[in-house]
Amino acid sequence: MDKDQDQEFDRFDGLKPYRQFRLGSRTIKATKATSLSTRRQVYRLHIERPTIFDYIPIAVVRRVLHRFVDIALPWAKTHWPEWFLPPTVILKRMKGYDDPDNLPDPEDMRTPEEKFEYEKQAYLRLRPVQGTAVPRIYGEAEYSGFRALVLSDVGGVTLHHLPCDTEVDDLKGKIEAAFRGLAACGVKHGDPETHNVILVDDFRHAIVVDFEYAEFVDTEWDTSPSKEDASACWHTYIETKAVLLESRRLSRMTPEKFAALRREEQNRAEAAALRLQAQRKHWFEEYKNSRGDEGVPYVD
């Protein structure tokens, strides 16, 4: 770790993440590295020299060579992605056995290595929809002694952190479109939480991330598990939004209005209990008459 990094602390992980990783034939250094989640080992790194062209001191030559590779040698970016990275990337490292969030899951007993491999294979299988339904993957790296995936930084905001008063046109359709992309590639996400769906490009479309629980199934959309995942994600968002809006409404009430609301709710509950008691007594009388037990008293 760099000397100037030893005393720096991160609001999520304590010590700052490492500022370098090994991808393919290159050791890549970053000027800045930050943790993005309290729940996962996910980091955003700002690359010091993202591409091979950044080692060329003359700007005109850099632009000419960059253009030449784009037109004549596009395959080079696929074979040597480590030399053609964007200015920022996302690193998701494999969980360690001692990580606090590496808790046993009774429904999925896969090891951290197996989960990492499933996620890697899911991204590779999702190449046709990378950049539209999922982030791009640049490859597997070695990062602070762990295996890690190097992914594109899509930016945006997760459904979980989307302000509850934000209106997004056809949000349900955007979520379904992303999961349709997964279904088209035969991938079931398996963990459709609102943390794992990101709205990007000014909320114009959705990106799905985190494939540790992925499964591989080839089905049509109407019978696809991905359709169920999309529905589950949407309903979780709607329920969470309703709770947040109600909490906001209650927090803005004066003490007098809140007390009046509580009394009103209590009166409604008492009235409902009386109606239920009367209904039970009515059912009991009907049952007693049908059996001819006229002398049996009703006991609530």
Rank of each mutant, 00 (worst) to 15 (best):
D6I: 14
Q7L: 11
Q7E: 10
D10A: 07
F12C: 05
D13A: 14
K16D: 07
F21N: 09
F21W: 02
I28S: 03
I28V: 15
I28N: 04
A30S: 15
A30H: 15
A33T: 01
L36E: 06
R39G: 02
R40S: 10
R40D: 10
R49H: 12
R49F: 11
D54Y: 04
D54M: 13
V60T: 13
R63S: 13
V64K: 08
L65G: 13
V69R: 09
D70C: 10
L73P: 00
A76L: 15
K77G: 06
T78G: 13
P87I: 01
P87A: 14
I90V: 10
K92E: 06
M94H: 07
M94K: 06
K95V: 04
K95P: 00
D98E: 14
D99T: 04
P100S: 03
D101K: 15
L103I: 12
L103N: 11
L103T: 13
P104H: 14
D105G: 03
P106T: 07
D108N: 12
M109I: 07
P112V: 03
E113H: 08
F116R: 03
F116P: 06
E117I: 05
E119Y: 01
Q121N: 12
A122S: 01
T132W: 08
T132K: 09
R136D: 06
Y138A: 00
Y138P: 04
A141V: 02
S144G: 09
S144F: 11
F146T: 05
A148N: 00
L149Y: 00
G155C: 05
G156N: 08
G156H: 09
V157L: 07
L159A: 02
L159R: 01
H160M: 11
H161L: 07
P163L: 03
V168G: 00
L171Y: 00
I175R: 01
F179W: 02
R180H: 07
R180F: 10
G181T: 00
L182G: 02
L182N: 04
C185W: 09
H189A: 06
G190T: 12
D191I: 13
P192S: 05
V197L: 10
V197E: 12
I198C: 07
I198Q: 01
V200S: 04
V200P: 03
F203S: 06
R204Q: 15
A206I: 13
I207R: 02
V208K: 02
Y213L: 15
A214E: 08
A214Q: 11
F216K: 08
V217C: 03
E220L: 08
S224N: 13
K227A: 02
D229W: 00
W234F: 00
H235I: 06
E239W: 02
A242C: 02
V243D: 11
V243C: 04
L245K: 13
R248P: 01
R249P: 00
R249A: 13
L250D: 10
M253H: 07
P255D: 03
P255K: 05
F258P: 01
R262T: 12
R263H: 11
R263M: 11
E264K: 14
E265A: 14
Q266G: 09
A269Q: 08
E270M: 11
A272F: 09
A272P: 08
L274D: 07
Q277G: 07
A278G: 10
R280F: 13
R280V: 11
K281S: 11
F284H: 12
K288H: 01
G295L: 14
Y298S: 04
Y298K: 02
V299F: 14
D300C: 14
